[in-house]
Amino acid sequence: MWSSPFITTPSSVSQIMLRVLIALIPGIALYVWYFGPAILVSIALASITALATEAVMLKLRQRPLKPFLTDNSALITGWLLALSIPALAPWWLVVVGTAFGIAVAKHLYGGLGNNPFNPAMVGYAVLIVSFPAHMTHWLTPHPLGDIVLTFSEQMNYMFNGVLPAGLTLDALTMATPLDTLKTQLHLGLAANDIRDMPIYGRLAGKGSEMVSIGFAIGGLYLIYTRVINWLIPAVFLGALFVISGTFHLLDPVHYVTPMFHWFAGAAMLGAFFIYTDPVGGATTFKGRIIYASGAALITYLIRAFGGFPDGIAFAALLMNICVPLIDIWTQPRVFGKKGGGK
């Protein structure tokens, strides 16, 4: 039984969480390289909000502050959320999302270890439902954009809502590679022709594909250091590959390659950092297989047929809610009982 041993020894929790944060760094570094430093400000804002909300909620719940504030779990929530939403956004966007995730999704459910839903993904869902327009303005990677904002110009937009004279958000931002794919398919273009558009690189979106690789490297480090179990990322990526590959083989005009699905959007972030969240994830071997392949299926269905460009977050939430059932269903059999897993 591996049910959440993480709350018993606070020091190891904070160490594990620290490793997760370290593992995010390659992805973040590539993010900064391709999209500029705005993401660092988002991450900083999210971190401050996460810690402040955590402190307020702990105080309200009359729990000790120190062990929970230093366990780094709030920071992970903040970082994951900041990485999931556009970097160039009004400051309150990331603040509202992080605060909602920590206060409602984490503490109202009983704090770390008791939250059925991944707080960062709840924050993301709240934001994309509430502020869909803001959530579509993604920075253009610098090999593509002719205009690059300076750091102070970015700050001026985030905190004052002012863009340099003569510039519009349209000129600086673009839809994500997944979103563009969806829009263009809607207009009747073939997947191959769409992939020839300049925003796409070798694997998926220019720039963002490299960030995905960065997250994958961090994820492999987490597996190597045994912070996360290899099963969930492997099954998730495998299932996503098989599902998207099947569609691609049957109808290559309308369905893009599995590689695209791997490296576009938040697939890598999801595989290694979101679905592996020990709190809301399944705990048995079979359970993890069901959990990860279910997440892949939902992700693909939302990407290919749904109303939102990416489905990682909704898949996480929907599978989170199935976890209690999955865990009961796949519990290793107790003596004498028939059935069980299958």
Binding site: P132, A133, T136, H137, L169, D170, T173, A175, T183, H186
Partner: peptide, 9 residues
């Protein structure tokens, strides 16, 4: 005709 960024469809 005008449109809003992010929602052109």
């Amino acid at each position: 005709f005008d449109y809003m960024a992010g929602a052109t469809i």
